[in-house]
C-alpha cells in the first residue's frame, strides 16, 4: 500500500505541477492515474519512485515515509520496484535475454543457470518465447514493451509502475499489454500503478482510479463509478470522445 499525503511539487522554474495530492494506491490492484497530457501524471510517478523529490508532503510505503528515507534505505526499497517506461527504456547494447537477466545479474544470488531459467520464464510469461537473442532495435514496439514488463517483474517486485505502457501501440496490442499487466498484478499480488490517457485501459482494468486535473485531484473512484459520475471535469475529459459519450448515454437509457 502506498499512501500519498498533501504532496506538492514545484520545479526550479517556479512552476507548481502537483498541488495537494492525497491518494492511496492499494495492494493487489491495478491503480490508474489518468488525466490530460501535461496534467502531471509522469511527474507524480517520478515522485513516487524517487526520480524527483517532492517539494512538500509524504509518500508512505506501508507506513514508511519514502521522502525521509536515507539513501541506503531507498536503494533497498527500489529493489522491490519494477518500472515500465513510456519509451520502454531497454538497454540497447544488450540482447532481450540479457535485458531481462540484468536485474537478476545485479541483485540476485542465483547461479547463472537459474538466472537464465528465471529470465526465460519471465519472457515466456509475456509470450515472447524465441526472441531471446534479438536486440531491442530488432523487435517491434509492442514486443519492446513486453520485454520491459518481463524485466520489471524479473525480481518479483512488490510495486510495479507503468508510465503509459501502451502509448504508440495499436488498440489490439494495447489490450494485450493491459491484460498482461492486470493478470500479473493479481497473480503476484503486486501494487501496480499505471499512467494512462487511454480510455480503453480505463474501462478495461481501472479498479482504482485517480484522475488528475491540472495538478490537483480531480476525482477518484472505479471504472463503474465513472459511468455514473456527475463530476464535470471528469466527464469533459472522459467523454471528450464521441464514442464514450454515446456509450454513457446508452447506459443511462
Amino acid at each position: 500500500m502506498i499512501e500519498i499525503k498533501h504532496l506538492y511539487k514545484t520545479f526550479e522554474d517556479g512552476k507548481t505541477v502537483l498541488k495537494d495530492i492525497n491518494f492511496t494506491f492499494e495492494d493487489g490492484k491495478t491503480n490508474l492515474i489518468i488525466g490530460q497530457s501535461g496534467s502531471g501524471k509522469t511527474v507524480l510517478m517520478k515522485n513516487l519512485v524517487g526520480l524527483f523529490d517532492p517539494t512538500r508532503g509524504e509518500i508512505l510505503y506501508d507506513g514508511r515515509d519514502f521522502v525521509k528515507m536515507t539513501k541506503q534505505e531507498r536503494v533497498m526499497l527500489r529493489r522491490e520496484m519494477g518500472m515500465i517506461f513510456q519509451s520502454a527504456a531497454l538497454f540497447d547494447s544488450m540482447t532481450v535475454l540479457e535485458n531481462v537477466m540484468f536485474p537478476l545479474d545485479m541483485f540476485s544470488d542465483m547461479n547463472e543457470a537459474d538466472r537464465i531459467k528465471r529470465a526465460k520464464f519471465c519472457l515466456d510469461r509475456v509470450n515472447l518465447k524465441g526472441a531471446e537473442q534479438k536486440m531491442p532495435g530488432e523487435i517491434s514496439g509492442g514486443m519492446q514493451k513486453r520485454v520491459a514488463i518481463a524485466r520489471a517483474i524479473a525480481l518479483n517486485p512488490k510495486y510495479l509502475y507503468c508510465d503509459e505502457p501502451n502509448s504508440g501501440l495499436d488498440p489490439k496490442t494495447s489490450l494485450v499489454i493491459d491484460e498482461l499487466i492486470h493478470s500479473i498484478t493479481q497473480e503476484y499480488n503486486m501494487t501496480t500503478i499505471m499512467n494512462t490517457h487511454d480510455m480503453n485501459s480505463v474501462m478495461g482494468i481501472g479498479e482504482h482510479i485517480l484522475y488528475i486535473h491540472e495538478g490537483t485531484v480531480g476525482w477518484t473512484g472505479t471504472k463503474d463509478e465513472i459511468m455514473t459520475s456527475t463530476n464535470e471535469k471528469l466527464n469533459s475529459f472522459i467523454f471528450a470522445s464521441d464514442l464514450f459519450r454515446k456509450v454513457k448515454e446508452a447506459n443511462r437509457e
Partner: peptide, 14 residues
C-alpha cells in the same frame, strides 16, 4: 542512454 531513460531505468532498479 540518458534521453531514452535507460539511466532512469538503472536508478529505479537501485
Amino acid at each position: 542512454m540518458r534521453v531514452t531513460q535507460q539511466i532512469d531505468a538503472l536508478e529505479i532498479m537501485g
